[in-house]
Amino acid sequence: MNNILLEVSNLRTSFYSHLGEIQAVRGASFQLEKGKVLGIVGESGSGKSVSALSVMGLIQEPGKVKEGSVINFLGRDLTSLSNKAMSKIRGNDISMIFQDPMTSLNPVYSIENQMVEVIQRHQTITKKAAKERAVEMLKLVGIPQPEKRIKNYPHQFSGGMRQRVMIATALSCNPQLLIADEPTTALDVTIQAQILELMKDLKTRISTSIIIITHDLGVIAEICDNIVVMYGGTIMETGTEQDIFYNPQNPYTVGLHQSIPKMNVDEKARLVPIKGSPPDLLHPPIGCPFAGRCPHAMQICLEEQPPTFSISENHTSACWLLHEDAPKVGDYITAEVVSE
Protein backbone atom coordinates (compact mmCIF):
# COMPACT_ATOMS: atom_id res chain seq x y z
CA MET A 1 0.00 0.00 0.00
CA ASN A 2 3.05 2.20 0.28
CA ASN A 3 2.98 2.64 -3.42
CA ILE A 4 -0.24 4.64 -3.34
CA LEU A 5 0.34 8.31 -4.06
CA LEU A 6 -3.21 9.51 -3.86
CA GLU A 7 -6.36 7.88 -2.65
CA VAL A 8 -9.71 9.48 -3.32
CA SER A 9 -12.63 7.90 -1.53
CA ASN A 10 -16.32 8.58 -1.77
CA LEU A 11 -15.83 12.09 -3.10
CA ARG A 12 -19.03 14.11 -3.44
CA THR A 13 -18.94 17.62 -4.89
CA SER A 14 -21.99 19.75 -5.57
CA PHE A 15 -22.68 23.18 -6.95
CA TYR A 16 -25.51 25.17 -5.42
CA SER A 17 -27.15 27.16 -8.18
CA HIS A 18 -30.41 29.11 -8.06
CA LEU A 19 -32.07 26.07 -9.63
CA GLY A 20 -30.95 23.78 -6.85
CA GLU A 21 -28.11 21.45 -6.04
CA ILE A 22 -26.17 20.17 -9.03
CA GLN A 23 -24.48 16.98 -7.94
CA ALA A 24 -21.44 17.02 -10.20
CA VAL A 25 -19.55 14.22 -8.47
CA ARG A 26 -21.57 11.61 -6.60
CA GLY A 27 -19.29 9.29 -4.73
CA ALA A 28 -16.07 8.82 -6.69
CA SER A 29 -13.31 6.58 -5.38
CA PHE A 30 -10.05 5.87 -7.14
CA GLN A 31 -6.38 5.66 -6.38
CA LEU A 32 -3.15 6.46 -8.13
CA GLU A 33 0.08 4.53 -7.81
CA LYS A 34 3.46 6.22 -7.76
CA GLY A 35 5.00 6.79 -11.18
CA LYS A 36 1.86 5.72 -13.02
CA VAL A 37 -0.37 7.56 -15.45
CA LEU A 38 -4.05 7.48 -14.62
CA GLY A 39 -6.58 8.46 -17.25
CA ILE A 40 -10.03 9.70 -16.32
CA VAL A 41 -12.30 9.44 -19.33
CA GLY A 42 -15.86 10.65 -19.67
CA GLU A 43 -18.14 12.93 -21.61
CA SER A 44 -18.88 16.53 -20.73
CA GLY A 45 -20.75 16.70 -17.45
CA SER A 46 -19.49 13.33 -16.27
CA GLY A 47 -17.69 14.91 -13.32
CA LYS A 48 -14.15 14.23 -14.45
CA SER A 49 -12.89 17.81 -14.26
CA VAL A 50 -14.72 18.53 -11.02
CA SER A 51 -13.09 15.48 -9.44
CA ALA A 52 -9.68 16.84 -10.37
CA LEU A 53 -10.51 20.33 -9.13
CA SER A 54 -11.67 18.80 -5.85
CA VAL A 55 -8.31 17.08 -5.49
CA MET A 56 -6.59 20.40 -6.10
CA GLY A 57 -8.86 22.16 -3.61
CA LEU A 58 -9.95 24.54 -6.33
CA ILE A 59 -13.70 24.18 -5.93
CA GLN A 60 -15.06 27.65 -5.35
CA GLU A 61 -18.40 29.10 -4.36
CA PRO A 62 -21.12 28.11 -5.11
CA GLY A 63 -19.46 24.71 -5.24
CA LYS A 64 -18.54 22.59 -2.26
CA VAL A 65 -16.84 19.29 -1.53
CA LYS A 66 -19.60 17.74 0.55
CA GLU A 67 -18.15 14.46 1.57
CA GLY A 68 -15.27 12.12 1.08
CA SER A 69 -11.53 12.33 1.46
CA VAL A 70 -8.47 12.85 -0.66
CA ILE A 71 -5.52 11.22 1.10
CA ASN A 72 -2.15 12.22 -0.26
CA PHE A 73 1.16 10.40 -0.07
CA LEU A 74 1.89 11.84 3.38
CA GLY A 75 -1.34 10.45 4.73
CA ARG A 76 -2.96 13.85 5.01
CA ASP A 77 -6.52 14.50 3.96
CA LEU A 78 -6.36 17.36 1.48
CA THR A 79 -10.05 18.22 1.81
CA SER A 80 -9.60 19.12 5.47
CA LEU A 81 -6.65 21.46 4.94
CA SER A 82 -6.98 25.22 5.25
CA ASN A 83 -6.67 27.38 2.18
CA LYS A 84 -3.22 28.50 3.24
CA ALA A 85 -1.91 25.00 3.78
CA MET A 86 -3.43 23.94 0.49
CA SER A 87 -1.76 26.70 -1.49
CA LYS A 88 1.60 25.38 -0.25
CA ILE A 89 0.75 22.03 -1.75
CA ARG A 90 -0.56 23.39 -5.02
CA GLY A 91 2.22 23.95 -7.50
CA ASN A 92 4.71 22.31 -5.19
CA ASP A 93 3.40 18.80 -4.59
CA ILE A 94 0.50 18.77 -7.03
CA SER A 95 0.27 20.96 -10.08
CA MET A 96 -2.24 21.21 -12.84
CA ILE A 97 -2.36 22.16 -16.51
CA PHE A 98 -5.54 23.17 -18.25
CA GLN A 99 -7.18 22.78 -21.59
CA ASP A 100 -6.67 26.28 -22.93
CA PRO A 101 -3.04 27.37 -22.71
CA MET A 102 -3.90 30.94 -23.70
CA THR A 103 -6.19 31.69 -20.78
CA SER A 104 -3.95 30.01 -18.24
CA LEU A 105 -0.96 32.24 -19.00
CA ASN A 106 -1.04 35.91 -18.09
CA PRO A 107 -0.71 37.91 -21.33
CA VAL A 108 0.95 40.97 -19.76
CA TYR A 109 3.89 39.19 -18.13
CA SER A 110 6.79 37.54 -19.89
CA ILE A 111 7.27 33.78 -19.58
CA GLU A 112 10.35 34.43 -17.43
CA ASN A 113 8.35 36.53 -15.04
CA GLN A 114 5.64 33.93 -14.66
CA MET A 115 7.94 30.94 -14.31
CA VAL A 116 10.28 32.61 -11.84
CA GLU A 117 7.30 33.67 -9.76
CA VAL A 118 6.10 30.08 -9.45
CA ILE A 119 9.54 28.75 -8.57
CA GLN A 120 10.30 31.44 -6.00
CA ARG A 121 6.89 31.04 -4.46
CA HIS A 122 7.67 27.46 -3.47
CA GLN A 123 11.43 27.35 -3.12
CA THR A 124 13.79 29.66 -1.31
CA ILE A 125 16.27 30.30 -4.07
CA THR A 126 17.67 33.43 -5.69
CA LYS A 127 16.12 34.98 -8.74
CA LYS A 128 19.10 33.97 -10.82
CA ALA A 129 18.88 30.34 -9.77
CA ALA A 130 15.14 30.38 -10.39
CA LYS A 131 15.72 31.68 -13.89
CA GLU A 132 18.27 28.99 -14.56
CA ARG A 133 15.79 26.41 -13.40
CA ALA A 134 13.13 27.91 -15.71
CA VAL A 135 15.46 27.76 -18.71
CA GLU A 136 16.31 24.17 -17.86
CA MET A 137 12.61 23.27 -17.71
CA LEU A 138 11.89 24.95 -21.05
CA LYS A 139 14.72 22.95 -22.57
CA LEU A 140 13.25 19.77 -21.09
CA VAL A 141 9.92 20.34 -22.82
CA GLY A 142 11.60 21.00 -26.16
CA ILE A 143 11.41 24.75 -26.64
CA PRO A 144 14.20 25.83 -29.00
CA GLN A 145 16.54 28.59 -27.78
CA PRO A 146 15.08 28.65 -24.26
CA GLU A 147 17.43 31.45 -23.08
CA LYS A 148 15.97 33.73 -25.72
CA ARG A 149 12.38 32.56 -25.75
CA ILE A 150 11.99 32.95 -21.99
CA LYS A 151 11.92 36.73 -22.52
CA ASN A 152 8.91 36.41 -24.83
CA TYR A 153 5.28 37.01 -23.95
CA PRO A 154 2.55 34.36 -24.31
CA HIS A 155 1.19 35.82 -27.56
CA GLN A 156 4.55 35.19 -29.22
CA PHE A 157 4.09 31.46 -28.77
CA SER A 158 1.83 29.14 -30.77
CA GLY A 159 -0.79 26.96 -29.07
CA GLY A 160 1.43 23.90 -28.88
CA MET A 161 4.38 25.94 -27.59
CA ARG A 162 2.19 27.56 -24.92
CA GLN A 163 1.10 24.16 -23.72
CA ARG A 164 4.78 23.22 -23.49
CA VAL A 165 5.40 26.33 -21.39
CA MET A 166 2.50 25.34 -19.14
CA ILE A 167 3.94 21.86 -18.69
CA ALA A 168 7.39 23.32 -17.96
CA THR A 169 5.92 25.67 -15.34
CA ALA A 170 3.88 22.91 -13.76
CA LEU A 171 6.90 20.64 -13.48
CA SER A 172 9.35 23.32 -12.32
CA CYS A 173 8.96 22.48 -8.62
CA ASN A 174 9.23 18.74 -9.10
CA PRO A 175 5.67 17.95 -8.08
CA GLN A 176 4.70 14.44 -7.03
CA LEU A 177 1.58 14.65 -9.12
CA LEU A 178 0.67 16.45 -12.33
CA ILE A 179 -3.01 16.77 -13.22
CA ALA A 180 -3.60 17.49 -16.91
CA ASP A 181 -7.15 18.52 -17.71
CA GLU A 182 -7.74 17.92 -21.44
CA PRO A 183 -4.17 19.00 -22.24
CA THR A 184 -4.44 18.42 -25.98
CA THR A 185 -8.10 19.09 -26.74
CA ALA A 186 -7.53 22.65 -27.96
CA LEU A 187 -4.62 21.62 -30.19
CA ASP A 188 -4.45 20.36 -33.76
CA VAL A 189 -3.79 16.69 -34.42
CA THR A 190 -0.16 17.05 -35.45
CA ILE A 191 0.53 19.33 -32.47
CA GLN A 192 -1.39 16.97 -30.18
CA ALA A 193 0.93 14.20 -31.34
CA GLN A 194 3.93 16.36 -30.38
CA ILE A 195 2.57 17.05 -26.89
CA LEU A 196 1.60 13.41 -26.28
CA GLU A 197 5.06 12.36 -27.40
CA LEU A 198 6.54 14.88 -24.95
CA MET A 199 4.41 13.59 -22.07
CA LYS A 200 5.34 9.99 -22.85
CA ASP A 201 8.98 11.01 -22.89
CA LEU A 202 8.65 12.92 -19.60
CA LYS A 203 6.93 9.93 -18.03
CA THR A 204 10.13 7.92 -18.43
CA ARG A 205 12.50 10.74 -17.53
CA ILE A 206 10.96 12.19 -14.40
CA SER A 207 9.27 10.53 -11.47
CA THR A 208 6.08 12.58 -11.49
CA SER A 209 2.80 10.67 -11.53
CA ILE A 210 0.20 11.97 -13.93
CA ILE A 211 -3.59 12.14 -14.03
CA ILE A 212 -4.92 12.86 -17.50
CA ILE A 213 -8.49 13.93 -17.92
CA THR A 214 -9.90 13.56 -21.41
CA HIS A 215 -12.93 12.62 -23.46
CA ASP A 216 -10.77 11.07 -26.15
CA LEU A 217 -10.22 7.32 -25.87
CA GLY A 218 -7.41 7.66 -28.39
CA VAL A 219 -5.40 9.89 -26.03
CA ILE A 220 -6.05 7.44 -23.20
CA ALA A 221 -4.82 4.52 -25.29
CA GLU A 222 -1.69 6.44 -26.06
CA ILE A 223 -0.32 7.08 -22.62
CA CYS A 224 -2.29 5.70 -19.65
CA ASP A 225 -1.52 2.72 -17.42
CA ASN A 226 -4.78 2.77 -15.49
CA ILE A 227 -8.14 4.12 -16.54
CA VAL A 228 -11.21 5.39 -14.73
CA VAL A 229 -14.41 5.67 -16.75
CA MET A 230 -16.83 8.27 -15.38
CA TYR A 231 -20.45 8.90 -16.24
CA GLY A 232 -23.13 11.03 -14.60
CA GLY A 233 -20.90 11.92 -11.66
CA THR A 234 -20.10 8.34 -10.76
CA ILE A 235 -17.35 5.91 -11.62
CA MET A 236 -18.55 3.20 -13.97
CA GLU A 237 -15.43 1.15 -14.43
CA THR A 238 -11.78 1.16 -13.43
CA GLY A 239 -9.03 -1.03 -14.71
CA THR A 240 -5.78 -1.29 -16.55
CA GLU A 241 -5.55 -0.17 -20.14
CA GLN A 242 -5.86 -3.82 -21.24
CA ASP A 243 -9.02 -4.33 -19.14
CA ILE A 244 -10.81 -1.25 -20.38
CA PHE A 245 -9.95 -1.65 -24.06
CA TYR A 246 -10.05 -5.41 -24.50
CA ASN A 247 -12.27 -6.69 -21.71
CA PRO A 248 -14.72 -3.93 -20.79
CA GLN A 249 -17.25 -5.07 -18.20
CA ASN A 250 -19.63 -2.13 -18.18
CA PRO A 251 -22.27 -1.44 -20.83
CA TYR A 252 -21.30 2.25 -20.89
CA THR A 253 -17.67 1.50 -21.67
CA VAL A 254 -18.80 -0.88 -24.40
CA GLY A 255 -21.16 1.75 -25.80
CA LEU A 256 -18.35 4.29 -25.83
CA HIS A 257 -16.12 1.91 -27.79
CA GLN A 258 -18.85 1.16 -30.30
CA SER A 259 -19.77 4.76 -30.99
CA ILE A 260 -16.35 5.75 -32.34
CA PRO A 261 -15.38 4.84 -35.88
CA LYS A 262 -12.50 2.43 -36.28
CA MET A 263 -9.71 3.61 -38.51
CA ASN A 264 -8.40 0.14 -39.23
CA VAL A 265 -11.71 -1.34 -40.33
CA ASP A 266 -11.87 -1.48 -44.08
CA GLU A 267 -15.52 -1.82 -44.98
CA LYS A 268 -18.07 0.81 -44.17
CA ALA A 269 -19.57 -0.37 -40.90
CA ARG A 270 -22.38 1.54 -39.34
CA LEU A 271 -21.72 3.17 -35.98
CA VAL A 272 -23.61 1.93 -32.95
CA PRO A 273 -24.57 5.04 -31.01
CA ILE A 274 -25.66 5.13 -27.39
CA LYS A 275 -29.32 6.11 -27.47
CA GLY A 276 -30.63 9.08 -25.52
CA SER A 277 -28.61 11.70 -23.68
CA PRO A 278 -26.70 11.96 -20.38
CA PRO A 279 -28.63 12.43 -17.11
CA ASP A 280 -29.49 15.79 -15.63
CA LEU A 281 -27.38 16.15 -12.51
CA LEU A 282 -29.81 18.65 -11.04
CA HIS A 283 -32.16 15.70 -10.60
CA PRO A 284 -29.82 12.72 -10.76
CA PRO A 285 -31.43 9.33 -11.27
CA ILE A 286 -31.93 7.22 -8.16
CA GLY A 287 -30.48 4.11 -9.73
CA CYS A 288 -27.63 3.62 -12.15
CA PRO A 289 -27.01 6.88 -14.09
CA PHE A 290 -26.73 4.92 -17.32
CA ALA A 291 -29.92 2.89 -16.82
CA GLY A 292 -32.02 5.12 -19.08
CA ARG A 293 -29.68 4.52 -22.05
CA CYS A 294 -28.52 1.00 -21.28
CA PRO A 295 -29.67 -1.77 -23.63
CA HIS A 296 -29.56 -4.27 -20.75
CA ALA A 297 -31.29 -2.21 -18.04
CA MET A 298 -33.27 -4.20 -15.48
CA GLN A 299 -35.79 -3.07 -12.89
CA ILE A 300 -33.14 -2.89 -10.17
CA CYS A 301 -30.99 -0.58 -12.29
CA LEU A 302 -33.68 2.06 -12.08
CA GLU A 303 -34.20 1.64 -8.35
CA GLU A 304 -30.81 1.28 -6.79
CA GLN A 305 -27.31 2.44 -7.59
CA PRO A 306 -25.16 -0.56 -8.44
CA PRO A 307 -22.33 -1.42 -6.05
CA THR A 308 -18.80 -1.75 -7.35
CA PHE A 309 -18.02 -5.31 -8.35
CA SER A 310 -14.46 -6.51 -8.45
CA ILE A 311 -13.55 -8.49 -11.55
CA SER A 312 -9.86 -8.92 -11.03
CA GLU A 313 -7.22 -7.29 -8.87
CA ASN A 314 -7.35 -3.88 -10.54
CA HIS A 315 -10.53 -4.18 -12.54
CA THR A 316 -13.84 -3.03 -11.06
CA SER A 317 -17.18 -2.19 -12.59
CA ALA A 318 -20.38 -0.73 -11.18
CA CYS A 319 -23.07 -2.67 -12.97
CA TRP A 320 -25.90 -4.87 -11.69
CA LEU A 321 -25.29 -7.32 -14.51
CA LEU A 322 -22.25 -8.53 -12.62
CA HIS A 323 -24.37 -9.54 -9.63
CA GLU A 324 -24.56 -13.30 -9.24
CA ASP A 325 -28.37 -13.30 -9.46
CA ALA A 326 -28.41 -11.21 -12.62
CA PRO A 327 -29.37 -12.90 -15.88
CA LYS A 328 -26.34 -13.73 -17.96
CA VAL A 329 -26.45 -11.60 -21.04
CA GLY A 330 -23.80 -13.82 -22.51
CA ASP A 331 -21.28 -12.04 -24.64
CA TYR A 332 -23.04 -8.71 -24.36
CA ILE A 333 -19.71 -7.16 -23.72
CA THR A 334 -17.80 -7.09 -26.96
CA ALA A 335 -15.94 -4.11 -28.27
CA GLU A 336 -16.60 -5.19 -31.84
CA VAL A 337 -18.37 -2.91 -34.24
CA VAL A 338 -21.54 -4.59 -35.37
CA SER A 339 -21.93 -4.09 -39.08
CA GLU A 340 -25.30 -4.15 -40.69
Binding site: V189, T190, Q192, A193, Q194, L196, E197, D216, L217, G218, V219, I220, A221, E222, E241, Q242, F245, Y246, H257, I260, M263, N264
Partner: peptide
Protein backbone atom coordinates in the same frame (compact mmCIF):
# COMPACT_ATOMS: atom_id res chain seq x y z
CA UNK B 1 -0.85 11.54 -35.64
CA UNK B 2 -4.40 10.38 -34.94
CA UNK B 3 -4.56 8.70 -31.57
CA UNK B 4 -6.13 5.28 -32.14
CA UNK B 5 -8.33 3.98 -29.33
CA UNK B 6 -6.51 0.65 -29.33
CA UNK B 7 -3.42 0.55 -27.09
CA UNK B 8 -1.88 -2.60 -28.58
CA UNK B 9 -2.12 -1.17 -32.07
CA UNK B 10 -0.80 2.21 -30.94
CA UNK B 11 2.36 0.58 -29.67
CA UNK B 12 3.02 -1.06 -32.99
CA UNK B 13 2.40 2.03 -35.10
CA UNK B 14 5.36 4.18 -35.99
CA UNK B 15 4.47 7.78 -35.69
CA UNK B 16 5.69 10.58 -37.93
CA UNK B 17 6.05 13.63 -35.72
Amino acid sequence: SIPIPDPNLTRKNKRII
